[in-house]
Nucleic acid binder design. Structure first.
Lengths: 196, 196, 196, 196
DNA sequence: CATGAATGAGACTTCATTCAT
DNA sequence: GATGAATGAAGTCTCATTCAT
């Protein structure tokens, strides 16, 4: 993690870590204060409220994660659309093993306690999910164009694929199943859905 | 919801509802007390602690949900294993539309804050998941025997199918996507994985 | 401890033990109920309140302890008054090493929180102390008559001797000093006060 | 009592008074809050817990009382060691009549419920007692050197003398006996133990 | 910009006591 | 005689938030 340049950044970083690892309700403003060495008052100087801080963390997460995902795929050469889908799956599963923290933040449930009464939270959440799903959708579209993928409903299949791999990561994060060990099976199963 | 016969049942019912809808941390014992008309002290007379109450809710959920699922499949005639898999998928998705509360309880994240320090919570959680997944596994095994399903790894495919539909229900519950509208697509996709 | 014949006795015995070992405030009626297998309601059937139960324990203590002390001295032959004083000291220190529980009850401070508002508690307490002190006083009187003790104020010296050995037992009970190891020194010191 | 300069001091003073007069268990944090006009939350801001507050009170007591005792003896001229012992006895008995509160805190039993599980409490307690006893021990040593006291075991006699006068103060505080009226008798009795 | 003492509402929990059975 | 479910007041403690500096 890059060293924070300002107190505001330090707060954001620590909050990110705590919210991901312990969850929203189990993280106190005092925890963040102690971990950063920043006074409690200062946190409320930079962020209107704890909820506001959470939203800032969520926004940063959205930009970082969805952005880095898109960028990775743009910087990589894929022979065709099918391989791009597989590349996206790989990247997602790989990220989950090296950056568990990020996924914990995504899979924590606290959104759904804040979101119903907070349009902004709701908006970020939708943007994250549709951002991720659209990545798969576009890969499928490309595959249909280049013939590596048979004619399917791109949006529906993208949704299914995303749901599948996100669900696996979740089971993994909770230590219920060593789901990522299913890597070959997952790739194979998705290929089965898409190949001509 | 059936009217509770005893105060203990009433507490259990109200706690179930609150934990599912609001989550563990956002439900106070006082909330349950007010909703049931039972004194706070009475709740602690019947349950050692709030966490103990949560465990009782979880156990009841396990017995009710996994039990009713298994029973439904036993009471229904299926032409072959593949149809049994599809029946299980249908039942799961149907349940999610009529008993949203149950799935909210299943998908809440609070387990994962309690489970690490509470073996019993962990045990219930594992039993719920392995109970549900084994339902699919057995249907696949039957299908492989009667030839309606091609040779696959039953445990791996069962895990994938469960992950897929459970993930869809989750997105639905959160109102992110009208995932159950994908019913036909899901059935078709799973058939693609299994048919000979 | 003799097995209790009635529930009331069982309550009294368990309460005695708990009040001595844990103190009044750290003993709950529920503790006594669990330890005896007697229902909580039953305790309040036999004793008006927790304070009332405490008073019953105190009264029993008074009768048992002061009584057994007096009896021991009556049943023992002493060559003269001085030896009787020494015998009383021995008995007190010996009791403290074999029946620590009794002394804990005596030395616990809770009396002084109950006594100010409860004449009965006050009365028991005075009776216990004056009972014990009068034992020493009478031995001194006997010693002055038979010439084994020089002329002193019996009441004052009795009070000093009692204070001394009771204080030592207290330090011992608290594990602050191995006070009973001072046995020889104590006997010698008291003899110094009394010998002709 | 000096007027408190800060809220923390005010809390400490009020806690001191309550713990001494009513004891630990019969003093609630709310009592201290009401008596000082300080919010309950503030008490927990300055002291981690009620037990922590008690420890702070105990430490202050140790420093104040043992310190002022030692200082008094240093600032007073004594003809010899025996007179110094008598001076210490006088000071102790005098203090008990003018600063009853201090002795109540010392004689309360609550230490012995906290100390077994709290090394710091245990340490303070030992320091208080050994501090007080060593005062008498040093006076005896001086007396043995200057010949005003006959050869005795300084540590054992110091312990006996302390136990005696501390026990008397306790009986006095509890209003069981007007023990300080025994002043002459006590002095005479100790002299009997020590004089050549 | 930043601080940290102070707050008070509300959290979980304990417990002596009551009362219908 | 005996029970145990039920109570509610009171306990300790947490925490997001405010405000004077």
């Amino acid at each position: 993690m890059a060293r924070a340049q300002t107190k505001k950044e330090a707060i954001l970083q620590a909050a990110s870590k705590f919210f991901a690892e312990r969850g929203y309700w189990d993280t106190s403003v005092s925890d963040i204060s102690k971990a950063t060495g920043v006074a409690e008052g200062t946190i409320f100087y930079h962020f209107q409220s704890k909820e506001d801080l959470f939203l800032a963390v969520l926004q940063k997460f959205k930009e970082d994660f969805v952005g880095s995902f898109k960028q990775h795929l743009q910087n990589t050469e894929f022979a065709n659309g099918l391989e791009m889908v597989e590349g996206a799956i790989s990247f997602y599963l790989y990220q989950s093993s090296v950056m568990e923290e990020r996924f914990l933040l995504l899979h924590r449930h606290h959104y759904y306690q804040i979101a119903p009464n907070n349009p902004k939270c709701w908006q970020y959440l939708e943007e994250i999910y549709s951002g991720l799903i659209s990545i798969f959708e576009q890969a499928i579209l490309r595959g249909m164009e280049d013939g590596s993928i048979r004619p399917v409903s791109p949006s529906k299949k993208a949704l299914l694929i995303f749901t599948l791999i996100d669900g696996l990561v979740r089971l993994d994060t909770y230590n219920l199943y060593q789901a990522t060990s299913l890597y070959e099976e997952v790739i194979e199963s998705c290929r089965c859905w898409l190949k001509p």
